[in-house]
Amino acid sequence: MRARAGARLAGVAMVLIHAGCGLVAAAPETTPRPPLERGAELALTEVTEVSAVAATRTVPAPQMRPHIRPVSAQIIAAAARPVDLAPVAPGETLRPMMRTPEFEQQVLFGRAKRRRGSVCGDIDIQGEEAGDIPGKLRGCGARDAVRVRSVSGVTLSRPALMTCETAKALNKWVSRDVETAFGRSNRVVQLRVAAGYSCRTRNNRPGAKISEHGRGRAIDISGFTLESGTTVSVLKGWRDRSTRKALQRLWKAACGPFRTVLGPDADIYHRDHFHLDVARHRSGRYCR
């Protein structure tokens, strides 16, 4: 009995396996779907038709740039202005007129005149050549000396005799520091010269060495005249609060173009002027 029951089960199993193979081969194309409702069928049909029509149309590319802005009221008002009316800014900005040939000739003539009056090969140093200056004392004298009237447009209260090395140092000091020492609106226009070339000993002391003034390598400045007509003296200005700092800056700035600079704090001999010379020292510049 048991053998017959096993045979029957085996047969049923084979039938089920063959039936399962047939079903696997047909899925999922033949898998039954639930029927759509009537409203759903109509909606699906409409969506399909719209998609088909949209596919046949060419969709334009999106606009990437903003639209042109409307013309402003200012531009319209400017365009409506009468032609003969005065122009608005920046059209009314003042501009220099074109230089006339006559003006150019004056400039060239003035420059040529300055060139003829210059010495030491520098147009900013105005004066005349003085040649070799013989000395009355041993050690005095200067070679190829010049008599300077002005440097960088700043006149000297009297022409000063000196060497070109001294004149160039003076011009450098004046152009860089002196002109605007008391303000750009009140420039220095003249230097008060206390001494230039002078064949003598140092501080006029008997038996002392020959001064650099006796070699044309020194100049003494006792004051500065401004555009306003005011003269700032070294003697009084050095103690005056309103001018002391400016004079101190000038004294300090001179210790560069010149190798020896002596001021009111150096000694009693220089309390009323700046002594400036180009003498060389082994220890470097000497400024007191």
Rank of each mutant, 00 (worst) to 15 (best):
V83Q: 00
C140N: 00
V174W: 02
R95W: 02
S233R: 11
T30Q: 11
I123A: 14
H18V: 13
S233I: 03
G207I: 10
G207Q: 11
D240G: 04
V107P: 10
A194E: 12
A78Y: 05
R285H: 05
M1L: 13
I219A: 04
R116V: 15
A27F: 02
F103C: 13
V189Y: 03
P66H: 06
L9E: 15
S118P: 12
T45P: 03
R187P: 01
P34E: 12
R69A: 11
H67C: 11
K252G: 09
W173L: 13
G237F: 00
R259M: 09
R215H: 07
R259A: 06
G121K: 06
R158W: 08
M98Q: 12
R158N: 12
L36I: 04
A26D: 04
E129K: 02
T201F: 03
A10V: 15
P34T: 12
A40I: 08
L137E: 06
P206V: 12
L42P: 03
Q248F: 09
T58E: 14
R115N: 14
G22Q: 01
G284T: 11
G39N: 13
M14L: 15
V119H: 00
D177W: 06
T31S: 09
R241G: 09
G6L: 14
T180D: 13
M97G: 14
C140S: 06
A194C: 03
R176F: 09
R2G: 14
K168E: 09
A246Q: 06
W238Q: 07
R239K: 12
A79T: 05
R138K: 12
R176L: 13
S175I: 12
G91A: 10
P35N: 10
L23K: 11
A86I: 02
R202S: 13
P35D: 05
T30D: 07
A142R: 01
R202G: 05
E92M: 02
I17M: 10
D124K: 07
A26Q: 08
A73I: 05
V50K: 08
G237R: 05
N203T: 08
A145M: 07
G183V: 10
A27K: 02
A10P: 13
R184H: 02
V53K: 14
L94G: 09
G131R: 08
R81I: 02
R115P: 04
I68D: 11
E41L: 15
S222I: 07
G131Q: 08
P257G: 15
V174M: 08
C120T: 14
V178Y: 00
L156I: 09
L170H: 08
T100S: 09
M98G: 08
R176P: 02
E92G: 10
V193A: 02
F182G: 01
H275N: 03
T31Y: 04
V146W: 06
L156D: 01
R95T: 01
V148S: 00
V59I: 15
E29W: 04
V178K: 00
R69N: 06
R187H: 08
L247V: 01
T45S: 13
G216Y: 12
E129F: 00
A54R: 15
G196Y: 03
